[in-house]
Amino acid sequence: MKNNIRRNSANDLYNVYSGSVELLDYKNDYKFTEGINDIANFENCLWLFDIILDEQANLNSDVQIWHLGRVIQDSFTLICKNESGHRIAQVQNLQKDFYFDDITIIKKDNVFCLPNEQNNY
């Protein structure tokens, strides 16, 4: 029988956000919604956004869907897809201390938002 492991997703906990009236400054003219700002600070994962920004030189997509998923213990893979669902970037073997098993983040132009916030931007 296949072993099903229940995953805990940061998106499940932070799904209470529906969009920000005010965007918060991050780096290089990039902005955070309130939901993203809270995840970055409360979950101590600014490193994740730094990795995404490092990848921007290689990408040419205004809308990017980033998914960080636990592979084993403290090892994660970060995958980026465009709006069509095609994989456009991947970073493997990220050794990080992150509580959640996964998180999905949307980058629309220069705004980072949660999936449930994306229709506002």
Rank of each mutant, 00 (worst) to 15 (best):
N8A: 04
S9V: 02
S9D: 09
S9F: 00
A10R: 03
N11L: 07
Y14I: 06
Y14P: 00
Y14A: 00
N15Y: 14
Y17D: 03
Y17L: 01
G19T: 06
G19I: 11
S20I: 07
V21D: 12
L24C: 06
L24T: 15
L24A: 08
D25R: 09
D25P: 08
Y26Q: 13
K27C: 08
K27S: 12
N28F: 11
N28M: 08
D29R: 12
D29V: 05
K31G: 02
F32C: 03
F32A: 07
F32W: 10
T33C: 03
G35Q: 04
G35E: 02
G35Y: 07
I36C: 14
I36E: 05
N37I: 05
N37R: 08
I39W: 04
F42R: 15
N44G: 05
C45L: 03
C45Q: 04
L46E: 15
I51K: 09
I52M: 15
I52V: 12
E55P: 00
E55V: 03
A57E: 13
A57P: 14
A57Q: 12
S61E: 14
S61H: 12
D62I: 13
V63L: 14
W66L: 02
V71W: 00
I72E: 10
Q73S: 14
D74C: 05
D74E: 09
S75Q: 10
F76E: 04
T77P: 00
T77H: 03
L78I: 02
I79E: 00
C80I: 02
C80F: 12
C80P: 02
K81M: 05
N82Q: 07
G85A: 05
I88G: 06
Q90R: 12
Q90S: 09
V91F: 02
Q92H: 08
N93E: 13
N93R: 06
F98V: 12
D101R: 01
D102Y: 13
I103F: 00
T104F: 09
I105S: 06
